[in-house]
């Protein structure tokens, strides 16, 4: 078993010495979570705007994960994964929203 040594790693000029963007992402995700939690428990808004509000907070939270932790959009290669994830999110919304929509018809089967 030969040992494979990693190549010498040079710190790129201007590269942060502290993972500030990760700390910022974590702080944002905690704030977004607690905001949604307290909005719901405190009944901050009527039901429909509240639902829209917490869904918006969830979408922001997902963007925080994607940008701060999964580094989407920070690669200089063709951004295949950005397109792939956009397609996935599109399918997700179609699956869930169309299932809810079709049930709003609520017509009995004759």
């Amino acid at each position: 078993m030969s040992m494979v040594r990693p190549p010498a790693l040079e710190r790129a000029p201007g590269q942060a010495r502290f993972p500030w963007s990760h700390v910022a992402g974590y702080a944002l995700s905690i704030v977004l979570t607690l905001a949604a939690f307290w909005a719901v428990l405190g009944h901050a808004l009527p039901t429909k705007p509240l639902l829209a509000g917490i869904l918006l907070l969830a979408v922001l939270q997902i963007l925080v994960q994607l940008v701060f932790f999964m580094h989407v959009g920070q690669d200089s290669k063709p951004r295949y994964h950005l397109w792939l994830f956009s397609v996935a999110m599109f399918f997700f919304v179609v699956f869930v929203v169309s299932s809810m929509w079709i049930l709003t018809f609520n017509t009995p089967i004759s």
Partner: peptide
């Protein structure tokens, strides 16, 4: 991950 999103999409739906 895209295919896993679809798995969870059907469960959420």
């Amino acid at each position: 991950l895209v295919s896993d999103v679809l798995l969870f999409a059907s469960l959420f739906a």
